[in-house]
Each structure stands twice: as C-alpha cells, then as structure tokens.
C-alpha cells in the first residue's frame, strides 16, 4: 500500500516538474521582454537576465517620444477591426447561402472554392500586388481591408457549423412567413454565434499580428501599424535604444495577451474548431 502510494506520488512529482520546467522555458522570452522594459539601457546591456535594480519607465516614455505609438496603435486597430467586421459579415452571409439556401450549382461552386484553399498565399503575392498597384490602392488601408474581407476558410467554418443547425428550424420559420433576411438575422445568426466568434477571433488575431501585408502596401509612415513600427524602429538605431524596444514589444504583445486571458476558452475552442473541422 505504502509503496504504491510512494510510486504514484513520485511519478506525480516528476510530471509536475517536467510540465513546470517546460512552461518556464516557454514563458521565459515573455518574462525577459517585460523585465527588461523596466530597466535602463545600460543595465540591460550589463545584466540582461537580472531583475531591475530600480524600476524605471524610461523605456516607455522614450518610445512615446521617438514614435507616435498612439497613432500606430490606432492604425492597427482600424485595420484589425474593419477586416474582422467585414470578414465575419461576409463569411456569415456566404456560409448561410451555402448551408441553408438550396440553389442550383451550390455544391460545385463551394467545391471549387475549397480547392483554391490549398493554394499557398505566396502564389498570390506578386499578382495581387500588381493588381492592387494598378488599382491605385497602394498606400491606402483598403489595399489591405478589401482583399482580406473574404476568406474561403472562414466561409467553410461557418458553413460547416450552420449545416449542424436543423433544417426544421428554418422550415418552421418559413411556414411562419419569414423570408431569408428574417431567417438569417433572427434565427441563424444567434444560433451560429460560436462559429462567428471563432471567425472573428482568428481574423482579428491574424490581422493584428500581420506585418507582411502592411510592409507591402502601407509605405507612408502615417499609415504604419504597430508591427511595422517595431520593425522599422528596430532597424534604425541598433543597440542604442534597447529599453525602448522592450517597452514597445511589451506594448504590442499586451493587448492580444489581455484579450486572450479574458476569453481563453473561446480562443482555445476557436483553434480546436478550426482543425477538427478540417
């Protein structure tokens, strides 16, 4: 009895030890970043791993002087919010049509869209750039917003979810005299909330963290996003402004981590939904 109890607790201790060690390794870069954001540049250089001897906000005040952080933040927010709203709306509409409105050629159109999902984004890079350039959109937000408004993958996610909503509910509403707009707004949208939340979370995260799109299309500093600001900032004064770089990376990482903390379950479910419906 006693030996088996000991064996169990020994393996339990080992389990906790392994998990905690791994967790520390995973979280260390975040700790390093936040920790150094409260030090002076000289202290970062001489003792990068130690805790700050005195907590200073010099990095934060400095980066606000060097960069228009609020503007970058605003730009990132404008982009992420518009893309998320548009994309979620269009995914809901298209998903509804593909799942709940029988029309000729539905399967074929949807199947065709699915096949294009396997095409890697790099293939679109150049032709899209040339096309958007010719439209005269380079340097404007809509160069990023309009093409990102539609994602086949999100339509697919919403459609899969809406297929699970029983047709009887839709039929009952139709018998009550409801047209498609009413059914969509009053019946389908509320029921499809989990799928729409998934789409919204993934889209927002993708667009907030994207730096390649802004790098290509937003060449004017007044349009730069946080990610682009960090990229350029890092390039300009190497080594001189370490404390400001840590302050800025902390500021960039913070919003999405805070959102993640608050809706952790939805986030995790969003990712689980994605792969399990693939």
């Amino acid at each position: 009895m006693i030996t088996s109890f000991r064996r169990i607790s020994a393996s339990l201790v080992l389990t906790y030890a392994a998990l905690t060690l791994g967790a520390i390794a995973v979280v260390y870069p975040f700790f390093f970043m936040v920790n150094n954001s409260f030090k002076t540049g000289r202290e970062i250089l001489h003792s990068p791993t130690a805790l700050p001897s005195t907590i200073t906000l010099i990095g934060y005040t400095g980066v606000f002087e060097e960069l228009d952080v609020l503007l970058l933040f605003k730009n990132s927010l404008i982009l992420a919010v518009s893309i998320t709203l548009l994309n979620t709306l269009l995914s809901a509409l298209a998903g509804y049509a593909f799942a709940k409105i029988p029309f000729p050629g539905r399967g074929r159109i949807f199947g065709f869209m699915l096949i294009t999902m396997m095409i890697p984004g790099v293939l679109f890079l150049i032709p899209s750039y040339v096309f958007i350039y010719n439209l005269g959109w380079v340097g404007h937000y809509h160069a990023l917003i309009i093409p990102s408004a539609v994602s086949v993958f999100n339509i697919f996610l919403v459609r899969q979810f809406m297929l699970g909503i029983p047709d009887e509910i839709v039929e009952a509403a139709r018998i009550d005299g409801a047209g498609d707009p009413t059914i969509f707004m009053r019946v389908i949208l509320p029921l499809a909330r989990p799928a729409l939340a998934t789409v919204a979370i993934l889209t927002f995260m993708g667009s907030w963290n994207d730096f390649f799109g802004p790098l290509l299309y937003l060449n004017q500093p007044e349009h730069w996003t946080l990610q682009l600001g960090l990229l350029q900032f890092r390039g300009t004064v190497p080594g001189e402004n370490a404390e400001q770089i840590w302050a800025l990376t902390t500021l960039i990482t913070l919003p999405i981590v805070v959102v993640y903390f608050f809706i952790q379950e939805q986030f995790v479910k969003a990712f689980a939904n994605v792969s399990l419906s693939k």
């Binding site: 946080l226 960090l230 990712f271």
Partner: peptide
Amino acid sequence: LPVVTSTVA
C-alpha cells in the same frame, strides 16, 4: 501564449 503573440515581437 506564443501562439497568440505577434511574430515580429
């Protein structure tokens, strides 16, 4: 945590 972090950061 790293999954939701920005790649640049």
